[in-house]
Structure formats: C-alpha cells, structure tokens
Simulated assay, not measured.
Amino acid sequence: MSGKIVFFEGRNFQGRSYECISDCSEIASHLGRCSSCRVESGTFMVYDQPNYTGQQYLLTRGEYPEYQNTIGFNDCIQSCRIIPAHKGPFKMRIYERANFEGQMQEVSDDCDSIQDHYHMSDMQSCNVMEGYWLMFEQPNYEGRMFYLKPGKYKNLREMSSDDMRFNSIRRITES
C-alpha cells in the first residue's frame, strides 16, 4: 500500500497542512479544519465523520481545492482510509435479502443496475471475496457510495442511517 494525501485547513490549499500516508481515523487531531486536499499518489476513501463513518467519497490522484462543491460534503473531511491496489480478479456474491438469503448472484465486473442486470428487487447482503468495491444508492454509479473490502456483510441496510438501498456496484481499479 502506498499513497499520500495532503489536507489543508483552508480552501485552495491555504493554511496549515497535514500529510497522511495511511488510514487516519480523526483528522481533527492534526488540523482544526480540513477544507481542501491534494492526493499525490494512491486512492483514498474520505469520510465526513470521524472513525470512517458518515458520507464517504473516493478520491484519486488530483487536487480538490473546494471539495465541498465537488463531492457534496456539507462539512469538512473528518477521516480517511487508503484503498489498497488490487491486481487480481474481482469476485463478490450479492444476495436479495439479509443474512445471505434469497436470490444470489456472483459478480466479477461493474454493474450499472442490479435490478436490470440480475432481476433482483433488492440487495441486502453480500460476500466480497476478492477486490475492493464501491456500492451506490442509485443506478449508473450515482448517489451516495459505500466502500466494501473483502468480508461478509450480512445486513447492508445497517450501513446507512436511513435504510438506503444499493442499486449499482463498481470495482475500485485505480491505484
């Protein structure tokens, strides 16, 4: 895993800065506020709450001088997690109901509409076997997103505070 993100207190890379090369559960312990950032290498998931919670957004190499407008956060970035580069195959099983019940589909590629491609009325649990994925609340990779690393997720509705449904999924292929 290699990556580097630099956070700045002010917009347009102004004020004090904090360089981060790994996960950071609470940026506020390093900066009073984080209003802009620059991803120098790697891929990061950023969160609008401490401890990797709240709204999240994937940032790739580039500059984010006023990310509140760009990524839709109402407040500043509070925590971040580096996304490991994955070079092998991608594989996940998605289930129509919680606890791995109901219709099951095995997925190894991006899917812009779970309902259209797999004829599933809902997706409430999954088992990520290989790779790192993003799930989106709307078709065509739009709306709020959630990061999934390898593991079993027996109730996806518990991941959001408002019983959000997931309608599209995409592999994280950028490193």
Rank of each mutant, 00 (worst) to 15 (best):
S2R: 11
K4Y: 09
K4W: 06
I5A: 13
V6F: 04
V6K: 15
F8M: 10
F8K: 05
E9R: 01
F13G: 00
Q14H: 14
G15K: 00
G15N: 06
R16V: 00
S17D: 10
Y18R: 10
Y18M: 11
E19F: 07
E19A: 15
C20W: 13
I21K: 15
S22Q: 12
S22M: 01
D23M: 06
I27S: 05
I27N: 11
I27Y: 03
I27R: 07
I27P: 07
I27A: 04
S29I: 10
H30R: 14
G32T: 09
G32D: 13
S35F: 10
S36G: 13
S36D: 10
R38Q: 12
R38M: 06
E40P: 00
E40V: 09
S41F: 10
S41T: 12
S41L: 10
S41G: 04
G42M: 07
T43E: 10
T43M: 08
M45K: 07
V46M: 02
Y47F: 15
Q49F: 08
P50I: 13
Y52N: 08
Y52R: 01
T53N: 11
G54W: 06
G54H: 01
Y57Q: 14
L59M: 15
E63I: 00
Y64P: 05
P65K: 11
P65D: 09
P65I: 02
E66Y: 11
I71Q: 05
I71V: 15
D75K: 14
I77M: 02
Q78R: 15
S79N: 08
C80T: 06
R81H: 04
P84M: 04
P89A: 13
K91S: 08
K91N: 04
M92E: 07
M92L: 08
I94A: 03
I94N: 03
Y95H: 03
Y95W: 02
R97A: 00
E101Q: 15
Q103L: 12
Q105L: 05
E106T: 15
V107W: 03
D109K: 09
D110Q: 08
D110R: 00
C111W: 02
C111E: 02
I114F: 03
Q115E: 14
Q115G: 01
Q115N: 09
H117D: 13
Y118V: 12
Y118H: 12
Y118A: 11
M120K: 05
D122E: 14
D122L: 03
D122K: 12
M123R: 02
Q124G: 05
C126G: 09
C126I: 07
N127A: 04
N127V: 11
Y132T: 08
L134W: 07
M135T: 06
E137S: 13
N140F: 07
N140W: 07
E142K: 14
E142L: 14
E142C: 10
G143W: 04
R144L: 01
F146T: 01
F146N: 04
F146V: 10
F146C: 12
F146H: 09
L148N: 01
K149D: 08
L156W: 02
R157H: 09
D163M: 13
D163Y: 11
D163E: 12
M164D: 06
F166I: 09
I169H: 02
R170G: 01
E174W: 00
S175R: 14
S175Q: 15
